[in-house]
């Protein structure tokens, strides 16, 4: 049976294509790692510009020594109730600090990043925002990244 009846006919329905995972090997013990947080949960400094809830491919810097009470979330894609009570449930910076004090990891990175996932210009995220955050993390000599998203 021929499966093609009309040559070149395409479905109007977009199907997501799963990309191949990008693999970076682990080369150090956890106790030797400087760890950064990167989140799609819309975390940023209260003093910083809020995300555009209709879609926003920009990102915000969060310095590693920021007290959690100076952080907030602007994100239109999930229920913010929990994260408004305790930012650590999406951005566990206090837990990371405890783990650095205990020596489980070497250090909390000097810089962390927040952006608003769940939509927006995916091409910009893939080709500009993502590579730029990666470059900044490299510059900060970060050994590993813990992400929260999805």
């Amino acid at each position: 049976m021929a499966l093609t009846t009309i040559k070149g006919l395409q479905s109007e329905i977009y199907v997501p294509i799963t990309p191949e995972p990008v693999w970076a090997p682990v080369k150090k013990e956890l106790s030797e790692m400087t760890v950064a947080l990167v989140t799609a949960a819309g975390v940023h400094l209260k003093s910083d510009k809020r995300f555009n809830l209709a879609g926003d491919f920009t990102y915000r810097d969060v310095p590693g020594d920021t007290p959690t009470e100076e952080l907030m979330v602007s994100h239109g894609g999930y229920d913010n109730a929990d994260v408004n009570k305790d930012i650590n449930c999406m951005f566990p910076i206090d837990r990371l600090r405890e783990l650095a004090e205990e020596g489980f990891i070497k250090a909390v990175a000097p810089i962390h990043f927040g952006f608003m996932g769940g939509g927006g210009d995916q091409q910009k995220f893939r080709e500009e925002t993502g590579p730029e955050i990666a470059r900044r993390l490299k510059e900060a000599e970060v050994d590993a990244v813990l992400l929260t998203a999805g």
Partner: peptide, 19 residues
């Protein structure tokens, strides 16, 4: 590159995106 791990609530979404 820098090795990463993602903490996900929606694991099918993470799978779909190639984490």
């Amino acid at each position: 590159g820098i090795p990463t791990i993602i903490v996900a609530a929606l694991s099918p979404v993470v799978r779909q995106n190639g984490a």
